[in-house]
């Protein structure tokens, strides 16, 4: 069965205050970086999965993202998926 690599990105919904992002934004100013209007912190999760097809891998990662990796009450998620067997650099 083919192997797939997925990168899941989890971010707080735009309506949810991100105090950690606000704190990082104020630290950026102390670093001397000006002009940052918005800074929000999320999570990136990488995983390898074996599945019979890309469609099956996609379905699995969707369920995983929606039910475990993110809490849809406060977070949004997206992901990228590609067949890792085809990577020329592996």
């Amino acid at each position: 069965m083919p192997n797939f690599h997925a990168k899941v990105f989890v971010s707080l919904r735009p309506s949810v205050l991100d105090p950690a992002g606000e704190a990082a934004k104020s630290a950026a100013l102390r670093l001397g970086i000006n002009g940052i209007n918005k800074l929000r912190i999320g999570k990136s999760i990488e995983l390898d999965i074996t599945a019979s097809s890309e469609e099956e891998a996609k379905n699995s990662v969707e369920v995983l993202s929606d039910r475990l990796l993110a809490n849809p009450v406060i977070e949004n998620w997206t992901f990228e998926l590609h067949q890792s067997d085809l990577d020329s650099d592996i």
Binding site: L12, V16, L17, P19, A20, A23, N71, V73, I74
Partner: peptide, 17 residues
């Protein structure tokens, strides 16, 4: 309980961290 869905909503990071 909120993660489980027995109660609505979620608990997130305190406003002032």
């Amino acid at each position: 309980l909120t993660e489980l869905g027995l109660l609505p909503g979620a608990l997130t990071r305190n406003k002032d961290l």
